[in-house]
């Protein structure tokens, strides 16, 4: 686990992530908290299961921090992502970005979550009352069913 970018099997502590970027130079700390939603396109999710390629995921989270520093040199970033079984309303990801002025902290925080959905090897499986499915892409436009019967069951 790197100091400011990590994957955790335990519940995330928002304050712990915020504290990592708190500093005298900052005039803003923007936090993004990603939580488990109950309904997606009319399907009721019972719980989620997140899986990760942990060592690579932590490297990619750190890479996002580097990318943020290229775009916003004064930014300081920390990101924690949880894996395993998550219930509805549980926190899946916490991003904290501190910057001298507020506009950059919003932009950098938004950048971080979008990049997580593109390059970090983490997957979520939605479990419903009538099936389960690994969700296939970050924009949730495409899913990869386990097999045909499962897909038919869902309709």
């Amino acid at each position: 686990m790197s100091e400011k970018f990590w994957i955790s099997e335990q519940p995330l502590n928002i304050q712990e992530v915020v504290d990592l970027v708190t500093r005298r130079e900052a005039g803003a700390i923007n936090t993004f908290i990603g939580t488990v939603r109950e309904f997606t396109k009319g399907n009721r999710t019972l719980y989620l299961e997140y899986q990760s390629y942990v060592p690579m995921a932590e490297k990619k989270l750190a890479q996002i921090g580097d990318e943020i520093n290229e775009k916003w040199p004064d930014a300081d970033t920390a990101i924690a992502h949880r894996i395993g079984h998550l219930d509805i309303t549980d926190i899946a990801v916490v991003i904290a970005v501190s910057t001298p002025h507020r506009a950059d902290s919003y932009d950098a925080s938004r950048y971080a979550i979008e990049r997580i959905k593109e390059i970090v090897p983490i997957w979520k499986k939605e479990h419903w009352e009538n099936g389960e499915e690994w969700i296939g892409d970050q924009k949730e436009q495409k899913a990869y069913p386990q097999g045909q019967p499962d897909e038919e069951d869902l309709i």
Binding site: K117, P121, I135
Partner: peptide
């Protein structure tokens, strides 16, 4: 632990991971 293209040639001891479209966040 680093993304590689289809034409990347593997060496002895390399660890290869196949990564379906990700869905973190």
């Amino acid at each position: 632990e680093e993304y590689a293209n289809g034409d990347f040639v593997v060496k002895e001891g390399d660890t290869i991971a196949f990564i379906p479209p990700v869905s973190g966040g």
